[in-house]
Design a protein around this nucleic acid. Structure first.
Lengths: 333, 333
DNA sequence: ATGAAAGCGCTAACAA
DNA sequence: TTGTTAGCGCTTTCAT
């Protein structure tokens, strides 16, 4: 391992002080004289010494790493979540170690075990539904844990998210108010994306109660993408020619659907209205901005990291944090 | 830190063997009897023991973490690169620790120091131009290092990438062959995105030599995005009404430009042709697929991780790896 | 096949 | 203000 960057004792020898003094200087303790501090710093410089945090973490039982587990890197919402996390951690000197489960509960379980073996200071994990082993490991872990994205009343430790059922309901209310009554749904990742399921549930409840009707439904068990939305939108329309509005599981698929309409010259929203969920940049940059619900990914990242940091600093943050959402009135409805 | 997951010695006590025997079992050494092994495994199970890799890394001077430094998470090419890295590392039992520099050389320097303090087994860092401190730290580090994305003849250690100048030249050649002569360029991130600069250089050289002409150029020193492309494309067109084809720094901006044309009813490619670089999914899902050059992000991720692993396994991988690129004939030229 | 001793590089706790 | 002692949890090396 030797870094080319020596050890504390080499620095100590060079500065002719004890290791403890070097340790104190490096950790910014104040009880070191100016002279000594200068001498130590000089030695550090001249040796190009970089402290070994593994050793520090082992000795102090305090790691500066946070484990973050997400389902995918290819869906831009997760990198955005990560950005919030890393931005928040950076100021506090912590680092994120990320693991990608690829939407597999088994891989998630392996990852959690691997992460815990590094004794992270905290754990941030997406979604609220996990493998039993994961629940056991996390429950046993002394590290603060945040489940992020969905809101649960019974988090393992803490949770930060939004109410997806309400987000679906809000969209439905909006569409009903606009006069739409005959709806279709196009979803993907059904197995893995429980949150999308909750949105659809809220949507369906609301349109049903409001006198609307679900006249077509198409679900695809593949990761969502623009291309997938574009491909499957046509099939959906074919199912029932009298669809007035389509609710899609997220902006990626919805953007694909809209591109299909643009390419085929189908007038939106006159012939067919489109609404979805995410609030991605791309959806708002389309010739017609999407009607959608913005989920606060970056903010949820910041909040979840902050909850962990708060706990590490001895505070008592709330178990459940509702990050909210925002309905965006686009031109597709 | 105590994990709720005990220590080796607790397991050893439970199984009534020495710590060494437990260590051997856990690391899959073969010189342990079946009986003993079974007893140890049982103890591990019953205690819910998860080994402490920090201690292992310290004792063996072998970390299982790789540092990965990227400029941003919001540009999908970097998550795709990461996906290749994590997929490749996973099988070998290594983990990626990511750092995000936000396109700042200073932040990159801080990050590299922070990373090295964890004594990673290897380092993967994007781009080929770094802060002098970074070069010093990396040069001094005993860990295998890969600079990824761009091709350099003089990597600090190894590099994996593509020749951006040639990618620009290939695009130019194609456009010249199609008969375009009056070109414009729209770029962003000029300071930070050296690779885009190289592509433009190759593009400009080639059109000039081929009888073409650069009649307009617009550069924006902001991170690229679809929205930005859409906003700035109009300005560019206004600069010179006789532009025949526009080369954009990447597919995000180009998609924005194309959306502008779709929204304004400007016929592409008849009135104006569009070409760029990346090969993003979104560009190919547009009503008109973009003419672009696909950079092999995922593959470069795999390759760079593999180079590091090879070195860790005592092999002598090549210093320079050309991952190549692929010209995509879209409908926008 | 198994164990004992020593130590990785650092920090906590206690002394001086 | 500075130093000493002990040990974090594991692996290496050398015995047996």
């Amino acid at each position: 391992m030797s870094t080319g960057s020596g050890t504390l004792s080499e620095v100590a020898a060079t500065a002719r002080v004890s290791e403890m003094t070097v340790s104190r200087v490096l950790r910014g303790k104040t009880n070191v004289s100016q002279k000594t501090r200068a001498r130590v710093l000089e030695a550090v410089q001249s040796l190009g010494y970089v402290p070994n945090r593994m050793a520090a973490a082992l000795a102090s039982a305090k790691s500066m790493q946070l484990a973050v587990i997400i389902p995918s890197l290819r869906n831009i919402v997760f990198p955005e979540l990560l950005a919030g996390i890393t931005d928040t951690l950076e100021g506090a000197g912590y680092q994120a170690v990320i693991g990608v489960s690829e939407y597999s509960l088994k891989r998630e379980a392996k990852l959690v075990a691997a992460m815990i073996s590094w004794r992270p200071a905290g754990i941030i994990i997406t979604n609220a539904y996990h493998h039993p082993d994961v629940v056991n490991l996390l429950t046993a872990s002394p590290a603060p844990i945040v489940e992020v994205m969905e809101l649960t009343r019974n988090p393992i430790d803490m949770c930060v998210g939004l109410n997806h059922r309400k987000a679906g309901a809000a969209t439905a209310t909006r569409l009903l108010k606009k006069g739409y009554r005959r709806f279709a749904y196009l979803g993907c990742d059904l197995e893995a994306d429980k949150a999308a399921g909750k949105r659809f549930k809220g949507f369906l409840e609301t349109i049903t109660q409001g006198g609307g009707e679900l006249v077509a439904k198409s679900t695809v068990d593949e990761p969502s993408s623009v291309a997938l939305g574009r491909r499957h939108f046509a099939d959906l329309l074919a199912q029932s020619p009298r669809i007035e509005a389509v609710y899609l599981s997220n902006d990626a698929v919805a953007s694909g659907a809209l591109m299909y309409c643009l390419a085929e010259g189908i007038p939106v929203p006159e012939k067919i209205a489109i609404a979805s969920f995410s609030g991605l940049e791309i959806g708002q940059a389309m010739p017609l901005p999407l009607t959608t619900v913005r989920s606060p990914r970056y903010k949820m990242g910041c909040l979840s990291a902050q909850r962990v940091l708060d706990r590490l600093n001895g505070k008592k943050p709330p178990r459940v944090t509702d990050a909210g959402f925002e309905l965006i009135e686009g031109a597709t409805t």
